[in-house]
């Protein structure tokens, strides 16, 4: 295999670990998954992420990778509800809002919230390098 896969894998595992709390909160709060379901989705996302970072053209910093992870997590949350029968519509207001706005919008909101948290003095989102 090309490169030094073990080190790279560890490096990206750390990045995944740093985004995981955000993913977790998205799945639990914005999409209303149970703890067990969220864990299952997170494991799937971990597999996907390790393949994603091996694709050419994929960035390698936390700042650049986080939006992709959040976007995919929100997609997963959305698809989770798409797979349910009509009678099982969510009652939770947060979940209903997420499904109405769509996964991309929710992912952007989460990203902005995180940026604001990391840069409390800034009104506008920070520039990506």
């Amino acid at each position: 295999m090309p490169g030094n896969p073990t080190n790279r894998r560890e490096e990206f595992e750390q990045i995944f670990g740093r985004v995981l709390p955000l993913i977790d909160s998205a799945l639990l709060q914005h999409y209303g998954l149970s703890r067990a379901e969220a864990t299952e989705v997170e494991e799937c996302l971990r597999d996907w992420f390790h393949g994603f970072v091996r694709r050419p053209g994929t960035p390698c910093t936390l700042d650049q990778l986080r939006p992709h992870l959040l976007s995919m997590a929100c997609n997963a949350g959305h698809v989770y509800w798409s797979g349910k029968i009509a009678e099982e519509v969510p009652l939770d207001g947060n979940v209903r809002r997420s499904l109405a706005l769509g996964p991309q919008r929710i992912a952007v909101e989460l990203e902005k919230t995180q940026e604001a948290r990391e840069n409390p003095g800034n009104d506008s989102p920070k520039e990506k390098s």
Binding site: M1, S34, E43, Y80, K84
Partner: peptide
């Protein structure tokens, strides 16, 4: 939250990177 999941569990056994390469 009601939560019977239709397509879950999603995760399947997949090859490791080394197995995939081989």
């Amino acid at each position: 939250m009601a939560g019977r999941i239709i397509p879950f569990p999603w995760r399947e056994r997949r090859l490791s990177p080394e197995e995939g390469w081989a």
